[in-house]
């Protein structure tokens, strides 16, 4: 007996209706994805700033440590970093408990903590470089002017260096945030159920795996589009010197405006360690099984067998999209273009 043919057969294999029907259900996991991305990015900015400062000031002892951290983090796949965090934090806590008699609860760590630490530390290796070069791009004259009116080092940093460096850094940091949004899809290995893991759960109930992952892809795509637009706006709002002077005649000043641009920068795609992900991860709803933390000494051999994620659900492998978001390719110009002067005011 022959099976159904043509359109019927297609719908049996791939039901477009399901793709859109399930979107709201998947979106119920969006808050956790956003929470991870935002908190990890904030962590990354703080650590990134400290690392940048250590490098700029060439602080003894810390500088080589910072160099090592950046090099090591950039040179290892993010999935491996997630595993090392997931197993490493409990290991160290147990060690400190035994060594110093701390009464920390090793098994009570919320899974999201591993995700935030791993993603935050991973991104900081990149953001520190963007922050460093942005800080270095601030003209010496601006800093001297701040000093000459009596600002302290801290006031100069807060009122002059950071606002000026932010304008330069935001395109790169924004691209980092978009990578971060996509990287959250890997944290299921730590046992966090965010959007990707959630979609897999939903798929497992209906066996509509393909549709579910197409829905998921659409959601991520729209999410990154929205994020990049918001970032462009933010950057533009920081470039306030390109706005019309309120006192000037609007029409004249409008001409001096630069053309509308989309926001997009490729942050060293070649060095992105995320590329190693595809094969390493077969679909797994849960985190890899971690054995109860062994007493010190047995740690290494005991954790080894658990290092493979246990495939429990669908047959579909997660493939991380490797490209940067599909946006216009031109980066906003960093150069401070001086608008036609005589048109303003007068």
């Amino acid at each position: 007996m022959l099976g159904p043919v043509g359109a019927e057969r297609f719908i049996m294999l791939f039901d477009l209706k399901v793709v859109f029907e399930k979107i709201p259900e998947i979106l119920s996991y969006l808050p956790i994805t956003l929470e991870i991305a935002l908190i990890a990015t904030a962590t990354s900015l703080i650590i990134g700033f400290l690392v940048a400062w250590i490098k700029i000031k060439r602080i003894k002892v810390l500088k080589p440590l910072a160099d090592f951290y950046v090099s090591f983090t950039r040179g290892t796949p993010i999935i491996v970093q997630l595993y090392t965090t997931y197993f490493g934090i409990p290991f160290f806590l147990t060690y400190f408990n035994d060594r110093f008699g701390w009464g920390l609860n090793v098994n009570g760590i919320p899974p999201i903590v591993f995700a935030l630490v791993a993603l935050g530390l991973n991104d900081a290796a990149y953001s520190s470089e963007s922050i460093r070069s942005a800080i270095l791009s601030v003209e010496k004259g601006q800093i001297e002017a701040a000093h000459s009116i009596g600002m302290t080092g801290w006031q100069t940093l807060r009122r002059v260096i950071i606002p000026e460096a932010a304008v330069v850094a935001i395109p790169n940091l924004g691209n980092g945030f978009i990578n971060m949004l996509k990287n959250t899809s890997l944290v299921f290995v730590c046992g966090v159920v965010e959007m990707t893991a959630g979609a897999r759960l939903i798929a497992g109930r209906s066996y509509r795996y393909f549709e579910m992952y197409v829905s998921l892809a659409i959601i991520y795509w729209i999410l990154t589009l929205i994020a990049s637009r918001l970032l462009v706006r933010w950057e533009r709002s920081l470039r306030r010197n390109e706005r019309d002077p309120k006192a000037a005649t609007k029409a004249a000043a409008l001409k001096a405006r630069r053309p509308r641009r989309f926001f997009s920068i490729d942050r060293d795609a070649g060095a992105n360690p995320d590329a190693a992900v595809d094969d390493a991860v077969t679909a797994a709803t849960g985190a890899p099984v971690r054995p109860p933390v062994p007493p010190p000494g047995l740690a290494s051999e005991a954790t080894e067998p658990a290092a493979q994620p246990v495939a429990t659900a669908g047959p579909v492998a997660i493939a991380e999209p490797l490209d940067s978001p599909p946006l216009a390719a031109d980066a906003p110009p960093l150069a401070d273009k001086r608008p036609v002067r005589e048109e303003v005011g007068a």
Binding site: A145, G150, V160, E164, R239, N241
Partner: peptide, 22 residues
């Protein structure tokens, strides 16, 4: 140093106005 900077003021050849401030 702070005393000197607060009680003297510098006008630079290249102005060095804060560029994102009016």
């Amino acid at each position: 140093i702070q005393y000197m900077r607060r009680h003297t003021a510098m006008v630079f050849q290249l102005f060095h106005l804060f560029k994102y401030k009016t």
